[in-house]
């Protein structure tokens, strides 16, 4: 499987996605500082409680990052899966003496892992820089504790896994329609809906875990169907 994954990377390359992740990291770091500074800009405003604790700030960033990474992942799935199984390129793919399920499995593992790991690292960098500067020159009124950092990482891990899982669900729509735009539109819709749920229940970790479990079940069903489709595919 490792060999198949490295062949996928060799064939398609990840340079563009690395650049995208770096840009997202920089923008989200700036955005986090912007959110943290908002209560200071208007101290009389009473509706800014969401931006006054580290917990809600980091969760907000996690939710926004989740949406971005689901879309990024859907772009990768479009390139690595939808495009390759559509039209003439599938003839080439199926001409290799490798089990079709293993090739698809390698692609899914590769994109899922890339999404989860890159989002997690992106979050670690953002929160790492933010918490270091907060320790030295605090902007947020909240008290910074070590547990805040670790709970942010735990939440980040959950959201990273969720972004990987949701992108697999969006892949199903794209594969079904054999369309790159459908994959991306599905990712935008799914991530926006989940984003709304998460934003409404921002500090309830049980909701995050609940959605994650539901997402894993949906992704498992999607993968079962995708493997069956690929096995039966005629090109």
């Amino acid at each position: 499987m490792n060999k198949l994954i490295s062949l996928e990377i060799k064939r398609n390359g990840l340079k563009t996605y690395h650049t995208a992740v770096l840009i997202v990291t920089a923008i989200m770091l700036c955005f986090l500082y912007l959110l943290a500074v908002i209560p200071k800009l208007d101290p009389t405003e009473t509706d800014l409680g969401l931006f006054m604790t580290y917990n809600s700030l980091t969760n907000l960033i996690n939710i926004i990052c989740m949406v971005i990474f689901v879309i990024l992942s859907s772009v990768m799935f479009s390139k690595f899966v939808v495009e390759e199984y559509s039209g003439k390129r599938a003839v080439l793919l199926f001409s290799y003496p490798v089990d079709r399920k293993r090739i698809l499995g390698a692609k899914v593992i590769m994109v899922f892992s890339y999404t989860v790991i890159s989002m997690f690292l992106c979050g670690v960098v953002i929160f790492g820089i933010f918490f270091i500067t907060e320790n030295l020159f605090p902007i947020c009124a909240d008290t910074l504790k070590l547990t805040t950092f670790f709970s942010s990482l735990l939440s980040l891990l959950c959201y990273s896994l969720l972004s990987g899982v949701l992108s697999i669900v969006s892949l199903w729509f794209g594969f079904w329609k054999k369309s790159i735009s459908t994959t991306i539109v599905a990712a935008v819709i799914i991530s926006t809906v989940v984003c709304q749920i998460m934003a409404a229940t921002i500090t309830y970790y049980s909701i995050v875990l609940g959605v994650l479990v539901l997402g894993v079940i949906a992704a498992a069903l999607v993968l079962k169907d995708l493997f069956h489709r690929v096995e039966q595919m005629e090109v």
Binding site: R11, N12, K88, R89, V91, L92, S95, Y96, P97
Partner: peptide, 14 residues
């Protein structure tokens, strides 16, 4: 497939 070489329709490459 291991023992066969093929060229079907227009060949596609990376």
């Amino acid at each position: 497939l291991k023992r066969t070489g093929s060229l079907i329709e227009t060949p596609l490459f990376y």
